[in-house]
Nucleic acid binder design. Structure first.
Lengths: 141, 141
DNA sequence: CCTATTTAAGATTAAAAAATCTGAAATAAT
DNA sequence: ATTATTTCAGATTTTTTAATCTTAAATAGG
């Protein structure tokens, strides 16, 4: 469903959103906190830097931070940055050019879910997740 | 979302459900019709034989056929046979022991979808897909 | 009984995804 | 300036998944 790189990225973004926005944080610190492989996470986070979701700074006291307030970062922007939007286009039966005009047998059913998921991911913002985490004392970023 | 083996299997099952139930069909014929790799498909179909969804016969005039009427075969049985039920258990953020007591940040949202999908897959039967295919002249099995 | 045919099963290879490594470039602090 | 730190970028390795190959076993038909 989501690639492991994408899962890592989301967890890292949620973690960052629980910190003051203007602080830089070492990727090493994030990977330690979330128990994720450093180099693999670093690469995914670079992608977010390129998409202007994160800002990075090299060198001593460098690190990464959110480029905007967490209420302005949608989940869909993270997912599409890392995994692309193939899931939201791709046929559930793997048929290359399955489309509305030439649908596969499951096309209609899936179209509905895909739209729902896309809407939900688009509506979901980092700050909501953070609030949820703080309120319900969820420790699993 | 679904492995390619699972996609192949579903397509093959739908194809078989458009044929008389008592006829054996060569796996080669199915893989030709659906343009799928023969050996890869054969292996997935073997899994269905073990799960009593298909019956196979070796030798001349052998092949595979549905073990029961297509109205008695649910989509979920195909999916779980080939891919297992990990998708319906696994955490969307990939956290090993994410559960109701120790949920991840997206747990609640996902629980809803997972349940919906599971219900939909459980409710969806091969004959419905076939009818859909015949009615709407969908040529993409 | 013999042969052509076809699935069964496991081994092998290829491709894709995930994870790691290495060296370079940038930055802050001394 | 020099040094320690830390991201950047691309190469490499490992693991997983997908695809193929090979041999055996079973079956129908002559």
């Amino acid at each position: 469903m989501l690639s492991s790189a994408c899962q890592d990225t989301i967890r890292a973004a949620v973690w960052l959103s629980t910190k003051p926005q203007d602080e830089y944080h070492h990727i090493q610190k994030i990977s330690d906190a979330l128990d994720l492989p450093y180099h693999f996470l670093a690469k995914s986070l670079q992608t977010l830097v390129h998409c202007n979701i994160l800002i990075s700074r090299r060198g001593a006291n460098g690190g990464v931070k959110l480029a905007k307030a967490s209420c302005d970062i949608t989940l869909i922007s993270l997912i599409e940055a890392v995994d692309g939007s193939t899931f939201f286009d791709a046929c559930v039966l793997g048929i290359g050019d399955c489309e509305d005009e030439k649908p596969c047998a499951l096309h209609a059913q899936w179209e509905k879910w895909r739209t729902e998921m896309h809407e939900m991911y688009s509506a979901m913002r980092l700050d909501e997740i953070t609030d949820d985490v703080l309120l319900r004392k969820i420790k699993r970023l």
